[in-house]
Design a protein around this nucleic acid. Structure first.
Lengths: 249, 249
DNA sequence: CGGTCAATTGATGTAGTTCAAGGTTAGTGG
DNA sequence: CCACTAACCTTGAACTACATCAATTGACCG
């Protein structure tokens, strides 16, 4: 007996070997699932980058530990995401499970072969790398400019977009990560994260299930949330480009 | 009559077509040089990504303009750098010359062909993409954790490393960008950048040529500069990894 | 029931922003 | 050659968003 997620069946109706893969996720199809308990490390920053992983279920955090012991979370990964794409010889960050999680792995060698051999996979591969780069840049904008409220709202929005199937519009979201994770991701302290949530509740933007441990968030006013995220209805190209001086030599 | 930069001769002793390139920069070899005046835009965020560029001379800034008109500089590019690698269909950022600059361009199609055709180029290509990703992550760490002084020192160090040939150890560096550029890159205000420079001068870490317009910096105490950058003698792998709680489910 | 751990809340401190002014250099035109 | 202007940079004073420190709450668990 086995569990099949529906969207995968559509992507690949037959069993395939890696080299016949129709999409990148097919490369992982026949790999064994590995189960991780909460907090379990997948690899450490600086390890030789010998595998590429697909998240099958659950959520992971990727992070760096800096010299003074603090932690910077550079991203969260959810079911369907692929880890370890744009890395060189060694992993740029550590990865660990937030809650229980299931992953599959293939060796880097095999993954690279699948991509280089199979012309079909290359566009998807480059698209994923490009997405990763875009996410990193968005995070730089967030960390450069946004205040605590904008950061939290951006975070919630991004989580909603990423973790809802196309068309679906769920009101409740279940955050797998704790407040400290959110703080380390948004460049804030846990106290500021907590206070900002309280403020958003008071404003009627969200509400929090008092039950479990404040991980279930109901989005009461999605439009307001989007406005408070301060992304100005997506980037405004071709206007305001006059800002910033022309540096003479 | 033509000008040849010495280090390039070593890389490729003969004239080559793109498909015979020994290294990525050879792909640009036969392209015409384009000259940019200070402030001249190369492309805008959101433009279709139709070219890849090599910086031949001078410096460029890549940046995003956010909804409220502010500017976030996500990187600087100097002679030898390649622009437009890990982008998808459209550029993720705008690029413009800081001072006068010279670039070469090849079409994306031709660049991609050169890379896919020529197995020799792929490792270099992936290494560059990986470097770009690593730089983005370092920037996230800087923006998440570092204070003004650490940011400025990190910036100066990185500039030195990037813009000095291996082995060379110049004491004076000539910053092509103005204070506002530095501020927009480091997530600070121009005033804080200025004040921090003053503080570093008072501490005897650097000194600034009073002549031109404060763009010439002499590094008086490189070791202290490195210490103040707060990167803790490179990342400390496999220690301090216990920090950060294990989130139960 | 006491212990633990995450989250919240309150009080206080501060690094960096904001606003405002002044200084230096370079360019322009009389 | 010297006003006049325009960039760019620096400096000062006041403010504020967030950090820090400290205490409390509430859920879970042996």
């Amino acid at each position: 007996m086995y569990i099949v997620r529906e969207q995968k069946i559509i992507a690949s109706p037959e069993m395939r070997t890696g080299s016949e893969a129709q999409c990148l996720r097919d490369v992982f199809r026949q790999q064994a699932s590995e189960h991780l308990t909460a907090g379990k490390s997948l690899f450490l920053e600086g390890d030789r980058a010998e595998h590429v992983f697909e998240v099958v279920e659950g959520a992971l955090r990727i992070f760096k530990i800096i010299s003074d012991g603090r932690r910077v979370i550079t991203g969260f990964l959810y079911s369907g995401d692929i880890i370890g794409l744009a890395v060189g010889q060694r992993y740029l960050y550590s990865a660990e499970a937030i809650s229980v999680a299931t992953v599959k792995r293939v060796s880097r060698r095999r993954f690279d072969l699948a991509v280089t051999d199979n012309q079909r996979l290359q566009p998807e591969f480059f698209a994923l790398v490009s997405d990763e780069m875009a996410a990193a840049q968005d995070q730089m904008v967030l960390l450069s400019c946004k205040n605590a409220e904008e950061r939290i709202c951006s975070f919630l929005l991004k989580f909603m977009k990423h973790n809802s199937l196309p068309g679906e519009r769920r009101r409740n979201i279940e955050l797998p990560m704790c407040r400290q994770d959110i703080a380390d991701y948004l460049g804030l302290t846990i106290e500021t994260v907590s206070r900002t949530f309280t403020k958003l509740i008071q404003k009627g933007v969200v509400s929090i299930e008092n039950s479990a441990l404040r991980h279930t968030i109901a989005i009461e006013r999605p439009a307001l949330l989007a406005r408070l995220a301060g992304d100005g209805e997506e980037v405004c190209w071709h206007e305001g480009l006059m800002a910033g001086q022309q540096a003479g030599h």
